[in-house]
Amino acid sequence: MHNILANLVSVEWIIYIASFGLILTGLFIVFTDKNLIKIIIGLDMAETGVNILIVAAGYIKGNTAPIFSKASLTPAQMTDPVPQALVLTSIVIGFGVTALALALVVRLYQKTGSLDVSKIRGLKW
């Protein structure tokens, strides 16, 4: 029983399910929801899913964080540092876009009194 489970549930599948689940749910919200705040939440979810995928690209099974804090650590025991640096960049960019989007929505709400994309005039897609 334990072996079957171990064969079925691998690290890969946990990460891929989390990542694709977030990306697809987020995009589904963006495509179908009409509330601007929810659309932004959807974008953020998709962004998070992609971040998980990028970090996973640097994962090496059983290895530790790439910090030489103890003299005994060797490079062969560590995971790939580049995707971790990439994900830092992409998180910050995602933060910037989200903050800007929320500010735009606040101003749009103040001008039009609605958060519904179908009620705000030009917004059709």
Binding site: L43, E47, V50, L86, S90, V97, G122, L123, W125
Partner: peptide, 22 residues
């Protein structure tokens, strides 16, 4: 309005771009 519309489409685009990079 135009800006938020641009932002939403642009963010979907950059999400796809990032998946490609990963």
């Amino acid at each position: 309005e135009a800006s938020i519309k641009y932002l939403i489409l642009g963010s979907i685009g950059s999400t796809l771009f990032l998946i490609a990079i990963a």
